[in-house]
Amino acid sequence: MKGTNLGEFEELVLLTIAALASEAYSVAICDELEKHTGRAAKLGVVHAVLNRLEEKGLAKSFLGEATSARGGKRKRYYEVTQAGKMALVNAREIREGLWRIIPELNLGGAV
């Protein structure tokens, strides 16, 4: 069932891709993740996850135009596929469904 399951970090990366829209390439994704989670996102980890997402068909990528920056190397841009969007919505629904059946969550005391 490789196609549909989303790991936590995979979900975060996929969300970031969606959030960055047309600027989603590996380094930018790392920076964005770091900004939102407050944790350092290593390129190696993110790169591996991006590769996996693409393999699962949740994201797709294409090479951009060459510029003089980055030593003349092109960027690989990512975007969320239809299947990716569905997986994100699905994950969110599962989560909200669970939240709804928790009787009384006392946030004040627990955190």
Partner: peptide, 29 residues
């Protein structure tokens, strides 16, 4: 510039389709 031998090593072992943008990423860092 980044060390040439490291770049060569990357080009040698990495799949050609992944190599270019990975090199670019590493260059940014």
């Amino acid at each position: 510039t980044p060390p040439r031998n490291a770049q060569r090593l990357l080009e040698w072992y990495c799949r050609p389709e992944l190599a270019e943008d990975l090199q670019g990423d590493l260059y940014e860092f």
